[in-house]
Design a protein around this nucleic acid. Structure first.
Length: 1000
DNA sequence: GAGCACTGC
């Protein structure tokens, strides 16, 4: 298929569509229906008339001829443009004296003027050179390579002359040409008949005739921006525009905004402002008019809408985009929508999916019709490891045999059972597969020690191999691999003399200047979330990090796994955005044959507590029953575990009804533990700092740790912790510092963030989220102002110990025990949890290397198993905070000691008299808090006579002053009455390092 | 001694 100049040309048209400029008619592109399915395959996708040089050369000698459908003047102009293209190519070849290496986190530049010595670069056997012509290294030379010789230059001159001749018309008077008139008219009519109007009718007709339609097509085929507009315009044309309100869900905030902006531009409008297109995402919206409009929003927004409008009565068409990604939220919305169809006869559902699994969604909705929109991507040639090894003539070298794998890289020992089965199958099939490779060098790949499954040299060779025009995108699973590959490449002569830029630089997205080329090394963030437009080569490392929830051990895990076919396809697609590309998958064909079709849907690998609360607040029926209706239901074990946790948290009662606390937690847009933290922050008068903590735990940590600056970043965080032994308070301190710096001006803000390794964007988001939480609290009646900084909500905000107690109240029972370590090799402490035994404090925590703790207990929020089990954030907490804000208290009197225990495992020695006092005070507190939760009202801190205030103040005093010897409750003869009792009967591990004295 | 990716009226 070809695009003559009348159609705008392949390249020009694409630019128009992507650039977001120009009006709809000029920018909307044809959806090629004759293409024979999908855009990924070779040869049938769109291409420009000029094609690539390789293709023309391989394609049978048509390289200098215009396409046959062109006539007269078009042929002349074709030559003119062709000449320009060839000249540009020639220019590029001659000026490439500098190259650039972009890293996702590091942006590095290298200057070939200083390092042109190719001999130091390619570490393979030189006897296998030269490379095939299309892999020439000619760009490294100052002069064009030999192949680009006189003959071609002569051709070039001829093209220029042809072009000049043709362009003479510029100086002629315009005269009427009736042939041309006819042609233009036919052309325009043809376009109307053949292209978009016809297709619009087809799509819209299908939607009009069916309640549910699946629209399948690859990313970039225009379905997101076009289908919505087709629906709207059809209604407007039929004089029914006011009945149309299209809502289109997006999995990511950024895409909701960019798509809305793109549609607005196509319609020659601004986004929002009561126009026909707009967006809504959390804390940010530009709404279109209520009727006759298209709204793009994140999926979470619709789930929130459902709380106040379970029928989505204001929506006429609900478009669910990117459902093939199988996000938790889109899977949940699918179940809801399926039920909603029974109640809303007039609602139209349009499901948009990648081609790969469109069928599945159609089946889910009673075999609803599927319409396919061919992709606009360029063809991408794919290679597997066997091809790559063959191409680079790989032979193992002596240096290959030194171990080059970084510690714990594969993290295979924690692999999931299903993955283990796949591995077994791979091992089983290996001998047979190996026989088919007899004599091929591919076998060596497996024999030689590898970095990341691929011999170290291969990586450098491969990068050099594709060191052609166009950007290179390398997919690796994690930062450590990115860092290693960076080091690997930097060790090569050609990449020496680099300038490093910290952080994700905007340069990653920019086209490099002439003569400069880029390599982007990225995680799967570059699969969907960011798009680097000029990528021509993709190197797919074949692995992806995946979180999973291990229901047997009740722990989240993250490990590098083999990609799914869907990931591989998505990665490949990244190479075909500007011209035909190439994709190198670094796994062999046996592995390729064993790849899963898709990643496990998120709903099947994530804890479900929050989702269960949502199901209850949306009144969607019994939790298990609802989840069984999902496209891929989570396991019953995962569901019952989540319900059990919610009962333990007192969010659900035994009959699975929401408690008063559960209702509040379900309303807050955070997971239940963080919700509880927020409520306690409000009730105990330390709202502002607690909201900072809640926002950061729920969104993300504002600290970033650049590669190579780990020590410095650690030091700055440690300073900000002010010896609080708390990651949570460190964030509070950092946030307060940021607020102060921001007040002083933008320059100070920038400096503060830079000095302390903080992200201003994240801090701003946290600030906005805090406002949202405070509004919720005011709406529910817990505070009297929607300002998180309102003095009435912050009477205790300076009380660090109380804030720590509130963290316990929110995060309990996520508690770990600290024991001293006697290891000489690794000084510090040992940390244990009840369920996991020994765990590690994550190295980024301010407590990671701490040896001096005041107490023996930590509270944490995120625990995950990667190379070990890590507590990602933690705060040292006191016994009193655990006693008052933890679980049930039991008092025991054994022969030699009296103890008080929280949930029977956090055991303290205590005289019975004090233990009983604590227990009764805790009972008072519980009933008071229960009352507050059932009938929310701000605590009247001024009225010290009120019972509320009396009890709370007593507890606050106790928590605040506990370790002082003169403390009122800490009376008389107890030197260390609250020391932990490691020999308590329920402590599960045998750690014989108790050196506490018994003063009793 | 380590950081897949998202999201919330």
């Amino acid at each position: 298929m070809s695009y003559g100049y009348g159609g705008g040309g392949g390249g020009g048209g694409r630019r128009g569509r992507r650039g977001g400029r120009g009006y709809r008619d000029s920018s909307r592109e044809r959806w090629d229906r004759g293409g024979g399915g999908g855009g990924g395959g070779r040869g049938h996708s769109r291409n420009s008339d000029f094609g690539s040089r390789d293709e023309q050369e391989r394609g049978g000698g048509q390289r200098d001829r215009p396409p046959p459908h062109l006539k007269g003047r078009e042929i002349g102009l074709w030559y003119a443009r062709y000449g320009a293209v060839r000249r540009k190519q020639a220019d590029r070849r001659s000026v490439c004296t500098q190259d650039i290496l972009y890293l996702f986190a590091h942006v590095c530049m290298c200057d070939y003027k200083k390092n042109r010595n190719m001999n130091n670069f390619v570490p393979i056997d030189r006897a296998y050179r030269p490379f095939p012509p299309f892999l020439s290294f000619s760009y490294l030379k100052d002069e064009p390579p030999d192949q680009w010789d006189e003959e071609e230059q002569q051709e070039e001159k001829e093209k220029v002359r042809a072009k000049e001749k043709d362009l003479e018309y510029l100086f002629h008077k315009v005269v009427r040409d009736s042939d041309l008139d006819d042609y233009l008219k036919r052309d325009l009519q043809g376009k109307k008949l053949d292209l978009k109007y016809q297709e619009m009718l087809e799509v819209v007709e299908l939607i009009n005739c069916n309640r549910v339609v699946v629209v399948s097509g690859e990313t970039g085929c225009g379905k997101t921006t076009q289908v919505t507009q087709f629906i709207l315009d059809d209604h407007i044309e039929r004089g029914m525009g006011s009945l149309c309100r299209v809502v289109c869900t997006q999995p990511r905030r950024i895409s909701a905004i960019s798509v809305a902006e793109r549609v607005a531009a196509e319609r020659a409008e601004t986004v929002g402002d009561g126009n026909s297109s707009g967006y809504q995402i959390r804390l940010q919206c530009r709404l279109p008019r209520r009727q006759g409009s298209v709204l793009y929003c994140t999926t979470g927004i619709i789930l929130q809408w459902l709380r106040s409008d379970p029928l989505l009565s204001s929506v006429s068409h609900l478009v669910l985009d990117e459902i093939h990604e199988r996000n938790l939220q889109s899977d949940v919305l699918l179940v809801i929508v399926k039920d909603l169809l029974k109640l809303r006869q007039d609602l139209k559902i349009i499901l948009m999916s990648a081609t790969l699994n469109a069928e599945k969604f159609s089946k889910y909705f009673d075999n609803c019709p599927i319409i396919h929109i061919p992709g606009l991507a360029f063809p991408v040639e794919e290679f597997l490891l066997e091809d790559v090894v063959e191409m680079i003539r790989y032979r193992p070298q002596r240096q290959d045999h030194r171990p080059s794998r970084k510690r714990g890289f594969m993290q295979g020992r924690h692999s999931r059972p299903e993955k283990e089965e796949k591995e077994a199958e791979y091992r089983e099939s290996w001998p047979c597969y190996a026989r088919t490779l007899q004599g091929s060098c591919c076998l060596l790949v497996v024999v030689a020690p590898c970095w990341f499954g691929v011999p170290v040299n291969c990586w450098c060779c491969l990068v050099s191999l594709v060191w052609q025009e166009g950007a290179i995108l390398v997919f690796l699973p994690g930062w450590d691999n990115i860092s290693s590959l960076n080091d690997l490449l930097m060790a090569q002569q050609m990449f020496r003399s680099v300038q490093s830029h910290l952080l994700l630089s905007p340069q990653v997205f920019k086209r490099p200047p002439p003569g400069v080329r880029k390599i982007v090394i990225a995680t799967n963030i570059a699969e969907t979330s960011i798009t680097i437009d000029d990528v021509v080569y993709v190197i797919d490392g074949g692995k992806i990090k995946e979180t999973h929830f291990d229901t047997n051990n009740n722990i989240s895990t993250m490990a590098a796994e083999w990609v799914s076919l869907a990931n591989a396809k998505q990665r490949k697609g990244r190479a075909g955005r500007v011209c035909p590309g190439k994709c190198y998958h670094l796994y062999n064909s046996l592995r390729a044959s064993l790849l899963d079709a898709y990643q496990l849907p998120e709903i099947m690998r994530t804890p479900l507590e929050e989702l269960c609360l949502q199901i209850k607040i949306l009144k969607l029926g019994p939790i298990a029953g609802f989840l069984r209706k999902a496209l891929d239901p989570p396991t019953e074990k995962a569901v019952s575990l989540a319900i059990k946790h919610l009962i333990d948290l007192n969010a659900l009662d035994r009959s699975e009804n929401l408690t008063a606390l559960g209702v509040h937690l379900a309303r807050l847009p955070v997971e239940p533990h963080i919700g509880k933290l927020i409520l306690f922050g409000a009730l105990l008068g330390c709202l502002d700092p607690v909201l900072t903590i809640a926002a950061s735990l729920s969104f993300k940590d504002p600290f970033f740790i650049p590669l190579g600056k780990e020590k410095m970043a650690d030091m700055r965080r440690k300073t900000l912790s002010r010896n609080s032994k708390s990651d949570h308070l460190t964030i509070v301190n950092a946030f307060q510092g940021w607020e102060e710096a921001k007040r002083r001006g933008a320059r100070y803000e920038r400096e503060y963030c830079w000095d302390n390794f903080l992200s201003a964007n994240t801090l701003q988001m946290l600030h906005n989220m805090k406002g949202q939480f405070a509004e919720h609290l005011m709406g529910a009646g817990f505070v009297s102002s929607k300002d998180p900084k309102d003095p009435m909500s912050n009477v205790n905000s300076e009380n660090e110990k109380l804030i720590k107690a509130v963290i316990v109240a929110g995060l309990y029972p996520k508690v770990a025990m600290i024991r001293p370590s006697h290891s000489k090799k690794r000084p510090g402490v040992k940390v244990y949890t009840q369920a996991d035994g020994k765990v590690c404090i994550h190295p980024k925590s301010v407590n990671a290397e701490e040896t001096e703790f005041n107490y023996t207990w930590l509270i944490y929020h995120l625990k995950m198993r990667t190379s070990s089990i890590f507590l990602y954030d933690c705060t040292e907490v006191s016994p009193f905070s655990l006693l008052f804000f933890g679980g049930d208290i039991t008092i025991q009197k054994d022969e030699d000691q009296e103890t008080i225990a929280v949930d029977q495992w956090i055991v303290f020695r205590s005289p019975a008299r004090i233990a009983h006092l604590v227990k009764s005070l805790k009972k008072e507190l519980d009933s008071l808090l229960e009352g507050k939760i059932c009938n929310p009202a701000p605590v009247d801190w001024h009225n010290r006579q009120s019972k509320d205030c009396a009890v709370i103040t007593a507890i606050i005093d106790l928590i605040t002053t506990q370790e002082k010897p003169t403390s009122s409750t800490n009376s008389a003869s107890y030197g260390r009455p609250w020391a932990s009792a490691p020999r308590g009967q329920h402590i599960y591990f045998n750690d014989d390092d108790d050196d506490d004295d018994d003063d009793n």
